[in-house]
Design a protein around this nucleic acid. Structure first.
Length: 489
RNA sequence: GCGCCUCUAGCUCAACGGCAGAGCAACGGACUCUUAAUCCGCAGGUUUCGGGUUCGAAUCCCGAGGGGCGCACCA
């Protein structure tokens, strides 16, 4: 648990506080720990390189030994040993009293010790920060989950795997950006404070702007704004950013989470599926070095192409009889009840029933990346109607290990149809569905200026990161996951 | 929101109705090639909090709080 300084920690601070007044404002380091290992790997035991380097980092282990002292210094690139001698090292006595966790800058010659450890033979060094609190057991690290999430700085200091997970996430986002830039996309930013929370079905967070005396909602999706930018003439746009949904927290859900949404003019959902599987497979290859992932004991093949099947096909397969959006309502409702799904509501049409039936039966059993396509129009108010069936839309969702990872479609460009769909949603909202959308007049006006045929997609970055690093819990790939605030006092 | 589990020193864990302990780190000391160094010494606790049962509670019971997992919610 988080706590004020306990006696042992206070003692530690008192003993060492004298040194803090001498902490410099900068340190002129010139060599990363990993660079020492790479450049002087051929030094023989006992050999001295003649090269003087300055390194900086955190003391992870300290082994003072009389007139000698060894310490492991870690920076963001790796670790290097510091080797001190009373005869050579300035302020040697103080060095032997360093604590685990202290930050130090050190200058000296690169040598390999008699016992074969590549080291910096320190001539001068400086304390850069003292660790007034210990991080815990140098062997076991910190495993308490609450400490790991609430005090991520401690987790990162103590646990190599935690550092690796966040680094992989960073590599993923960088790779994604570079790929999209390379394909002619421009990166944009759209409002997080929205007068209407649109673009998805979810309960929003509410806030208030004092000067305007207006209610705002934290965005639940950037979709509508991004399409307005396409209307404005940006033919390929994307945004990487945080979305906020006021719903339950689970191993797969954090109230604020990160997605990339991308819109491409002149493309439909068929072209988009190809773009998306190539994009994601490429990222996985670059970050992991392979497209074959091991996730929670299962082997996942992320290489393109991915399986494609319609929602009706997969649902039919799962329930053992053919069903689709034209199947009689009563039959679908009965199958849904039999499958133990959500209790059917009288207001639900066959589209909603089919979607629920899919979720209750087929969804969880999809392990390998699969494009589930051709959703009911009823549950997809922003997607364009299917060219072969007006009760369906041209949409896909990608599921991996039973989870929705990606959602995309041919965008609805017709303002009249969009208004009709909004009005259906608003009616449902009126009837008590607080996740249904409202009519967004600003968006409708934008469509009236002309949205060309466009395909759009959203990818859950956190969930993709979970796959890449084999994390069972979304909190492992979020630096500071949402937690219940601790009681005051 | 519901169910099950869990909370002991800075960290990792013992003690399971009978004196609250160990290892690590911290603090003091010895040691001229260490690798989780080794050795000697010292200190560190309202056992998450509040009630109750009992001669006696970290341990059993009730309540509160934090956390984990599952369910629900999440197209």
């Amino acid at each position: 648990m988080v706590d004020a300084a306990r006696p042992a920690d206070r003692l530690r601070a008192q003993h060492r506080s004298r040194a803090v007044s001498e902490i410099p404002y900068s340190y002129p380091w010139d060599t990363a720990a990993s660079a020492v290992a790479e450049q002087w790997s051929s030094l023989e035991p006992g050999e001295e390189s003649g090269a003087i380097v300055a390194v900086a980092g955190r003391i992870m282990l300290s082994r003072p030994q009389g007139k000698l002292a060894f310490a492991e210094l870690r920076d963001s690139s790796g670790s290097v040993q510091l080797f001190c001698l009373a005869k050579v090292t300035e302020d040697f006595e103080a060095f032997t009293h360093l604590s685990l966790g202290d930050w130090v800058g050190a200058t000296g010659e690169v040598v390999r010790t008699k016992r074969g450890e590549l080291s910096v033979k320190v001539t001068s060094w400086q304390l850069l920060a003292e660790a007034r609190r210990s991080f815990g057991d140098k062997w076991h690290g910190v495993s308490d989950v609450e400490t790991r999430y609430r005090q991520r700085e401690v987790d990162l200091w103590a646990n190599e795997e935690s550092r690796g997970r966040l680094l992989a996430r960073s590599a993923l986002i960088r790779n994604l950006r570079e790929r999209l830039w390379g394909q002619g996309f421009i990166e944009v930013e759209t409002p997080i404070l929205n007068p209407i929370a649109g673009g998805a079905a979810a309960r929003p967070f509410t806030t208030h702007h004092n000067a305007l005396d207006a209610t705002f909602y934290l965005r639940i999706a950037p979709e509508l704004y991004l399409k307005r930018l396409v209307v404005g003439g940006f033919e390929r746009v994307f945004e990487i950013g945080r979305l906020f949904r006021n719903e339950g927290i689970s191993t797969r859900h954090n109230p604020e989470f990160t997605t990339v949404e991308a819109y491409i003019a002149y493309m439909d959902y068929l072209g988009l599926m190809e773009l998306v599987e190539e994009l994601v497979a490429g990222i996985v290859m670059d970050v992991c070095g392979t497209t074959t992932l091991s996730y929670q004991g299962q082997t996942i093949e992320m290489g393109a192409p991915w399986r494609r099947a319609t929602m009706a096909e997969l649902t039919s397969e799962a329930v053992g009889r053919p069903v689709d959006v034209h199947t009689d309502r009563a039959v679908l409702a009965e199958l849904l009840i039999a499958a133990g799904g959500k209790a059917p509501d009288d207001s639900w049409g066959p589209g909603k029933l089919l979607a629920e039936l899919f979720e209750a039966t087929a969804e969880a059993s999809i392990v390998q990346p699969t494009f589930v396509t051709d959703h009911p129009a009823e549950t997809s108010p922003l997607a364009r109607r299917h060219r072969d069936d007006p009760d369906l839309v041209e949409r896909f969702e990608t599921f991996v290990v039973g989870r929705e990872l990606i959602n995309g479609f041919s965008e609805l460009t017709d303002p009249d149809d969009q208004r009709a769909r909004f009005e259906e949603q608003a009616a449902a909202h009126e009837a008590g569905d607080d996740e249904a959308m409202l009519v967004d007049e600003e968006y409708l006006r934008a469509l009236e200026h002309g949205l060309p045929p466009t395909a759009g997609v959203g990818i859950g970055i956190d969930r993709l990161a979970m796959l890449l690093v084999d994390a069972a819990n979304i909190r492992e790939v979020i630096a500071f996951p949402t937690l219940k605030p601790l009681p005051q006092g």
